[in-house]
């Protein structure tokens, strides 16, 4: 699916908001110059998402099992903001929805991308990198031994 530039940007920030630590969003929320005046469009609710997979990784689809997930939608003026995440943290989903709405405001976007989204992306990247480095220490080369059979 080809996304417009705006959609691609939003896809990125929603994904980052989902993977933020709740405290990261809480801190960012407190740091806002003015507290946003928003109302619920759909109050935060926890439920399940059925996780799909494919046989052999690429083949027929099947249902692997569910994961808990939480979603929330808010209205900031006439802008809808949505938050979705794995797990059961409703406040996190609420804040994700608020930042989704704030990030859609042209006046705030570039500032919030830099102050909120970028640090989350960097932390996730650095976590991954650190984990990869630990994992890479366990790389192994196996050598095939010649069997001691006489010919």
């Amino acid at each position: 699916m080809d996304l417009s530039q705006n959609e691609a940007a939003r896809k990125h920030w929603i994904s980052m908001l989902s993977q933020a630590l709740p405290e990261e969003l809480e801190t960012a929320f407190e740091a806002l110059a003015e507290s946003p005046d928003y109302r619920w469009l759909r109050p935060a609710e926890s439920g399940l998402a059925m996780v799909r997979a494919r046989a052999g990784g690429t083949g027929q689809r099947f249902n692997l099992g569910e994961t808990t997930m939480t979603r929330a939608s808010i209205l900031l003026g006439d802008t809808a903001g949505h938050g979705y995440l794995i797990g059961r943290n409703k406040r996190h989903a609420e804040l994700a929805a608020v930042f989704d709405a704030l990030l859609q405001q042209p006046s705030l976007q570039s500032k919030l991308l830099e102050s909120v989204i970028q640090p989350i992306a960097e932390r996730l990247h650095s976590n991954k990198k650190q984990q990869s480095q630990e994992t890479d220490k366990t790389r192994v080369e196996f050598f095939t031994m010649v069997r001691g059979e006489s010919d």
Partner: peptide
């Protein structure tokens, strides 16, 4: 719990 969504098939080739 209510079922809120069905995910896209996970892409295990892109596994970390």
């Amino acid at each position: 719990l209510p079922r809120l969504a069905t995910t896209e098939p996970i892409d295990t080739a892109n596994m970390h």
